[in-house]
Design a protein around this nucleic acid. Sequence first.
DNA 1: GACATTAGTCACTAGTAGTGACTAATTCGG
DNA 2: CCGAATTAGTCACTACTAGTGACTAATGTC
Lengths: 223, 223
Amino acid sequence: MSDRRARKPPYSVDLILLTAVGGQLAVMLARSSEGREKWMLPWDVPRAGETMEASALRITKTVGVGEPAWIEQAGAYGDAKRHPSDSDVSVAYAALVAMGTQSPVGGVYAWFPLADVPLLPPRQKQTLDGAITVVRGRMDQSPVAFKLLPQMFTLTELQQMYELLLGKRLHKASFRRALQSAWLVEPTDEWRSEGRGRPAQLYRYSPRKRRPAQRGIRLDLLN
Amino acid sequence: MSDRRARKPPYSVDLILLTAVGGQLAVMLARSSEGREKWMLPWDVPRAGETMEASALRITKTVGVGEPAWIEQAGAYGDAKRHPSDSDVSVAYAALVAMGTQSPVGGVYAWFPLADVPLLPPRQKQTLDGAITVVRGRMDQSPVAFKLLPQMFTLTELQQMYELLLGKRLHKASFRRALQSAWLVEPTDEWRSEGRGRPAQLYRYSPRKRRPAQRGIRLDLLN
DNA sequence: GACATTAGTCACTAGTAGTGACTAATTCGG
DNA sequence: CCGAATTAGTCACTACTAGTGACTAATGTC
C-alpha cells in the first residue's frame, strides 16, 4: 500500500491471509490509515517487473508473517465499486500460515475470526468470500489442512482442522483409516501430554508417492 | 480486439471457449490479423462500466456462438511476457458451448482440437492450459459435462463425455448407477436410432434437490 | 486406588463400486 | 424371413470402503 497517492496503477494485489485461531478460521486485516477503526485486506500495487505472485509474497513479508505455507491465486475482481487502490482490477491471492503465527506489526495488522470480520470495502468483502470458497474447495486436491497446522501435530488436532474446514464432525476411526490409506503422515517418536488423558503421538506431514487411486465417479455432490 | 492500437488498456479479458468435436475437447481460436496463419485466443479490453464477465460474454457474441452454456473465471495472468494487448494483466474466462455449435464467422474463428492447437502467444498458452485444468477440476461440483452436450442426449453420449473429460474409460453399469443415485437426469419419451443396434432413450439434464449426501473423506487423491 | 479424560484400535455392519453376463431392440446380409 | 451383428439397458454377484460403537491404553485428579 506504498504509493496509494500515485497515478492510477495497472492493477492491485489483495492478500487473503488465513490461519486458525481458537477453532475458527481467521483472516489478517490491516488497519486503514483513514478512519481509526476501519480495516481492510492487505494489498499493494505491483512493482516494475514483479510477477503477481511475487507481489503477493512481498505483502506477506510486509505483514510480518514471513513466507506463507501455501499460496494460490483466488480470482480477479473488477466489478464492485470501491477498492482502496484506484485500480480497475484486483487480483486476489489466498495464503495460509500455521496456527499460532503472530504478526510482529501488532498495531497495524490483526487476525479476525471470520465471524467477527468488520465491514470491508465492497470489493474486498466479495474477494474474501471468494477466497474462503477457493480454500475450502482445494481441500481435496491440496494439503490445505496441514498448512494450517504446525510442523508436528497430533491426529486429533488434524481431525479438528478438517472438521473446521469441512464444517462438520468426523468419526475418529473413519478419519484415521482414511488417513492411513492415503499415506499422508508419518509418526514421530515424540508424544505430547495435554494435561489430563493419555498423551498423543505427534505426526508430521510426509506424503508418499502412491497409486493413482481415485476410484469412483462422484456424480453426487453435484446437484 | 477492437481498439488494439489505443493507449494501454487497464486489463484484457481472454476467452477460452471450449466444446467437444469428434471425441476431443476443442478450443475456439481467432485468426490473427497480423501473420496469416497465426492464431490466438479471442480477447478484448473492457468497455467503460462493463464488468469483467460482461466483457467475456460480449466476446462470445463477437465470436458468434451466442450465450455460452457455462462460464467461469479461470484466473488472471500477468507474469508472462507478450500478450496481443499491451495490458499488464489478462483475466481469463472459460466458457462451454454444446457440441455441434459452429461459429458463423468462419474465416476468422475456428475450433482446434486440443491436440492440434497451434503456437500461441506465450501468456495465452499458459492461460489455455490453466483453463482446461479449471474446467476438469469443476467436474465434481458443476454439471460441466452436460453443458457440452445438446439439451437431449443418450446416456451413452453422456458417458462418453465423462470419459473424455476424465481421460479414462468408465464401466457402463457403474456409471448409470451413479447417475441414478445423483438424480441428475430425467428420461424423455423420445428415442434415437443410430443406425444399427437398439435405439437409445433420450434424456435431459434436470437436477433434483436432494439430501446433502457427500459422504466420505477424500484424503486419497491428495498426494 | 477408583474415576474421569483423552488417545488409539478393533470388529461388525451397511452401503457403494467393480464386474461380467444377461436380455432387448434394432440393422444388415443372405 | 431369419440369423448374426450391434448397440442399449439391466441384473446379480463380488470386493471393497465407510459408518459405527465399543473396546483397550495411558495419563491426571481426587
